[in-house]
C-alpha cells in the first residue's frame, strides 16, 4: 500500500525543515555558536585524521600508482625484480624522499623570496562531493598559522588558509571554483584576475584588452596589503591558450597551475612576507632540452675500415 502520510509525519517534516532553515539563517548571519561547532568538530577530528593518514598511506600510494600508471611504469618494472621486504622498504623510502624533495623545493622557493614560512604535512584531502577543492594540513594556530595566509609548494602557489584550528588548518586550493587571485604576467606586468575551475586549469581574465599575451607566459601573484591573503611574486602557472575574441571586452586565457594538487605531501604557509617585492625572481626557469648524441659514419671508397665520428 502506498504511503499517504499522516499529520504527525507532516509535522515532523515541517519541524525538521524549519530547524534547518533556522540553522542556515543563523550561519549566514555569522552566529558564533555555529562556527564554534565546526571548529570543535575539526579540533576533535584532527588526531583521528592523523591516524587515518598514517594508516591509509600505503593504500593511497597504491591508488596513486594505479591512477598514474603510465608515468610510474618504469619505476614499477624496477620494483618487480625485488622481493617483498625490499619493496616495502623502498616504498617507505620513496614516500620520505618525495616529501623531502617537496620540502626542499618549497624551502628553496621561500628562501629565494625571503618569506618566513611554516612547513606542514597534508593530512587530508577534502572530498569533491561538495564541489570544493581543499586540503587539511597538520599545523594550526599554535604554529602561528592564521586565516588568509598564502600556502606554497615547491612549484608555486597552492592556495590560501581558509580556516585555522588549534593543530590543523583548512587550505582552499587555487583550483577551487570559488578561488580568486590578482595575478600579473612576468615580464610584461599585465594584470588580471585568475579564477579556479575545479581542475588543474584556471582562467585568467585580463583587465587590459589592448596588450597581447602569449602561450607560455609565466603568471605571478600580485600580492595583497601586508601580504595577506597573498604575498607578491609567488609563481602561479603558465598560459596554455589565449582567447582573443574581437568583440570581447577583456582577453581571457587558460592557465595551467605549476602545482599538481593531487600529489601534495608537504606545503609551506607564509607567516611573514618578504621585506621587498621579489618581482620576477621566482619565475621557474624554462626547461633546457638535453642534446641527443648522434653518430655519423662517412663511407670513403677504397678505405679499409670506416671510423665513426661522434658529433653533438
Amino acid at each position: 500500500m502506498r504511503y499517504g502520510g499522516d499529520n504527525r509525519g507532516r509535522l515532523l517534516i515541517i519541524v525538521l525543515v524549519v530547524t534547518t532553515l533556522f540553522l542556515i539563517t543563523l550561519d549566514l548571519r555569522g552566529v558564533q555558536v555555529i562556527n564554534g561547532l565546526r571548529t570543535g568538530t575539526q579540533t576533535a577530528l584532527t588526531p583521528v585524521q592523523k591516524v587515518g593518514s598514517w594508516v591509509v598511506s600505503p593504500f593511497r600510494n597504491f591508488l596513486s600508482d594505479v591512477t598514474h600508471l603510465g608515468r610510474t611504469r618504469n619505476q614499477m618494472e624496477k620494483l618487480k625484480t625485488e622481493n617483498d621486504k625490499l619493496r616495502l622498504a623502498l616504498q617507505n623510502r620513496q614516500v620520505a624522499d618525495a616529501q623531502l624533495k617537496q620540502l626542499k623545493g618549497v624551502l628553496n622557493l621561500a628562501g629565494t623570496a625571503g618569506f618566513k614560512v611554516v612547513n606542514a604535512k597534508v593530512i587530508s584531502q577534502g572530498s569533491s562531493t561538495s564541489f570544493t577543492q581543499t586540503i587539511t594540513i597538520d599545523a594550526g594556530t599554535t604554529s602561528g598559522i592564521h586565516t588568509n595566509m598564502t600556502v606554497l609548494s615547491g612549484y608555486g602557489l597552492v592556495g590560501v588558509v581558509k580556516y585555522a584550528y588549534t593543530n590543523s588548518a583548512l587550505v582552499q586550493l587555487a583550483s577551487d571554483p570559488a578561488f580568486r587571485i590578482g595575478a600579473r604576467i612576468a615580464g610584461s606586468q599585465q594584470i588580471g584576475i585568475l579564477s579556479g575551475q575545479g581542475t588543474r586549469k584556471g582562467v585568467l581574465q585580463l583587465l587590459d584588452n589592448t596588450t597581447r599575451i602569449h602561450t607560455g607566459d609565466a603568471l605571478l601573484a600580485r600580492g595583497s596589503d601586508n601580504g595577506r591573503p597573498f604575498v607578491p611574486g609567488v609563481p602561479i602557472g603558465e598560459i596554455t591558450s589565449v582567447s582573443n575574441s574581437p568583440g570581447a571586452v577583456t582577453q581571457t586565457a587558460d592557465v595551467k597551475f605549476y602545482t599538481n594538487f593531487s600529489t601534495l605531501g608537504v606545503v609551506a604557509v607564509v607567516v611573514s612576507g618578504a621585506s621587498s617585492d621579489p618581482r620576477d625572481s621566482l619565475v621557474p626557469p624554462k626547461p633546457h632540452p638535453t642534446p641527443i648524441p648522434t653518430v655519423t659514419i662517412y663511407a670513403t671508397p677504397g678505405a679499409i675500415s670506416p671510423s665513426p665520428t661522434a658529433t653533438k
Partner: peptide, 9 residues
C-alpha cells in the same frame, strides 16, 4: 565536515 563549503544546514 570541514570540507562543506556552504552554511550550516
Amino acid at each position: 565536515s570541514q570540507t562543506s563549503p556552504g552554511p550550516m544546514g
